[in-house]
Simulated assay, not measured.
Amino acid sequence: MSELILHHYPTSPFSEKIRLILGYKRLAWKSVIIPAISPKPDVVALTGGYRKTPFLQVGADIYCDTALICDILEHRQPTPTLYPAHNKGVARVLAQWADSTLFWTAMAWSFSPAGAAQVFPGAPPEVLKAFAEDRAKMRVAVPRLPPPDAAAACKSYLRRLANMLEEQSFLLGAAPCIADFAAYHPLWFTRHRTPAMAGILDHTPSVLAWMDRMAAIGHDQEQAFSAAEAIALAAQSTPAPLKNEPFQDEHGIALGSQVVITSESFGPEPTQGELIAATRMHYTLRRSDERAGTVHVHFPRIGYILKKAPSA
């Protein structure tokens, strides 16, 4: 099977989610470090426009959004599972809450002035300004909580997580599942990237102990890889054959149409290509790039909007 290539950067919380899952499943992976803000020409060569972090590359197949990446890793290595059979629906719903509500609340708290200064220690003001402007452009429908309101919400959410950990080691049982990895990464950012704001975690010792257990999983077998090598690999690879899954048409857009896919809430940059699959859970676009060649770019349905391309 083709190697797993994660395009990420060290301080990205969603990347930490995937790095830990790779460690949990003991999967070897190659690490391509990408810029935290635009421009990202090497990213766009592979994705066609999508620029959120991280994304996963397997040869000439590009997987966008960590929800989809988790499914791909589960298929690659089913054990230990991210989706326990007895409560996989609950695990997915809890993970979706953690990746959205908990994440944005934790970010609003972490990027209070004292925390923001620690994200880029020693950086000149123009660096902070560029990061803030970049993220403002990516915010489509995500309200920004003032720090006092974020603090109140964070404390409530932490107490709820602590309640789940009263009689078990992880959120839904004796082993971590997708909900644990999703809830961990925004709190990891607060604890490790903005320690000035991490005192909020001290009110819930059981959450801190759970975080220690999650951190102990590690990232496993990471190997450095360059963006140029990743693009060259895509160019010399052929996308994997699509699974024989039924076409699920919700839009009246036929396979073979030129379409555009965008995020519904964060990261409005569009990816355009030929719609070659629309299954129960995923979309796949075929597109060509002068550097990366023909690639298949995959998106989850949830969280993304599909439309006909303007010229179609």
Rank of each mutant, 00 (worst) to 15 (best):
S226P: 13
S311M: 13
A114P: 12
S206C: 08
T204W: 00
A182T: 10
T262F: 14
Y184T: 07
A36E: 13
A60Y: 02
A130P: 12
T194P: 09
E269W: 12
C70R: 02
A150K: 09
I178W: 05
W97H: 10
Q258D: 15
P241F: 02
R76G: 00
S311C: 12
E245F: 01
M138A: 14
T262E: 15
V207Y: 13
V44K: 14
I200F: 13
Q272M: 08
T294W: 01
E74R: 06
A174H: 13
Y283P: 01
G23Q: 01
I72M: 03
L145P: 12
V119R: 10
V260I: 14
Y24K: 05
L68C: 01
T79D: 08
E245S: 05
G199D: 09
T81M: 00
G303T: 06
W210C: 02
I200Y: 13
P246F: 04
V44D: 07
A85N: 05
L285Y: 02
F120M: 15
S100M: 06
V140G: 10
L6T: 14
R191A: 15
I217C: 13
V43S: 04
Q223P: 03
A151V: 00
A232K: 12
V90N: 11
G218L: 07
A175F: 10
G293W: 03
G256N: 10
A175P: 03
D220P: 05
H203V: 12
P239V: 00
M107Y: 03
I34M: 02
K308S: 09
R19A: 09
S169R: 03
E126A: 15
P246Q: 03
K308F: 03
T279M: 00
P246K: 02
Q118C: 14
L165T: 07
E133Q: 14
G218N: 09
L56T: 11
I72N: 01
Q57M: 04
R159C: 08
F225W: 11
I200M: 15
P186V: 06
G256C: 08
A108H: 05
R76L: 11
M214V: 14
E222K: 11
